[in-house]
């Protein structure tokens, strides 16, 4: 559980965003980042860190496209309540505010975990990852509770097209959080056993991106599903 020192300052200045340029590993012509980058791609293949982060961003964008299809469906079916309850009757603003608080706080602690990783502190990384996971689990518990309560009241997804799309879009986000929690647990074990190796660091970077992306989607969900739903 010892923390190692920060990278030497001069190394950071040479490559402030650690894009792999100027690290000098690999001779010219062998990939892995070059000294003489003069333009887009002119320096040869990017470093693994850049490739992995960039690829994961592309995946996140595709995931956001998938959510946008669910959002579009929800917008279309907003009034299709088929005589059943609408959002105004069903949604509980306090619960939604609590859920939002949990998720945003978990994003903050996730960021703190990244800072701890930067300082190579095993202990604080684990602590903040654990808090992130607990907040995420709290969010999930609230959501599951909301779902079961609605289904018990006869406002399940089979009741109307509006409720179908509500359960699908919120549930899809919930599934993402569940997958994120599984990933988080796996990451904690990996960090604990394998330490801060380059590939573990890249995975932590991707996990951070993923967890923040879930927040972005929740903000859209909060607005499109809950706020508009309560307003109509």
């Amino acid at each position: 559980m010892s923390s190692t020192a920060l990278p030497a300052p001069h190394r950071r200045d040479a490559d402030p965003y650690r894009l792999g340029r100027g690290q000098g590993h690999g001779a010219p012509g062998h990939g892995g980042g070059h000294d003489h980058a003069t333009g887009h791609g002119a320096g040869g293949p990017a470093s693994k860190r850049v490739v992995v982060g960039f690829g994961f961003w592309i995946f996140l964008l595709s995931d956001i496209v998938m959510f946008s299809a669910f959002f579009a469906a929800h917008a279309v079916l907003l009034d299709a309540t088929a005589g059943g309850p609408s959002g105004r009757e069903l949604f509980d603003p306090t619960r939604v505010a609590l859920e939002t608080g949990f998720l945003l706080a978990s994003s903050f602690t996730c960021g703190l975990a990244a800072v701890a990783t930067e300082a190579r502190s095993q202990l604080w990384t684990q602590i903040f990852l654990l808090i992130t996971g607990l907040l995420g689990a709290g969010f999930l518990a609230l959501e599951i509770n909301e779902f079961t309560r609605m289904i018990a009241e006869g406002a399940g997804p089979q009741r109307s097209a509006f409720l179908s799309s509500f359960f699908a879009v919120v549930g899809c986000h919930g599934l993402h959080v569940t997958a994120g929690l599984l990933w988080l647990g796996t990451m904690m074990a990996q960090v604990f056993i394998k330490g801060f190796r380059p590939n573990i660091l890249r995975r932590l970077l991707c996990f951070n991106l993923f967890w923040h992306a879930l927040d972005i989607i929740w903000v859209a969900l909060f607005t499109i599903v809950y706020l508009i739903g309560l307003g109509t």
């Binding site: 279309v76 079916l77 088929a82 359960f167």
Partner: peptide, 15 residues
């Protein structure tokens, strides 16, 4: 038993 595209309960097949 969802109703995204069904005839009943407000489903929208043109969607």
């Amino acid at each position: 038993g969802f109703h995204f595209f069904t005839n009943e309960a407000g489903g929208n097949m043109m969607m």
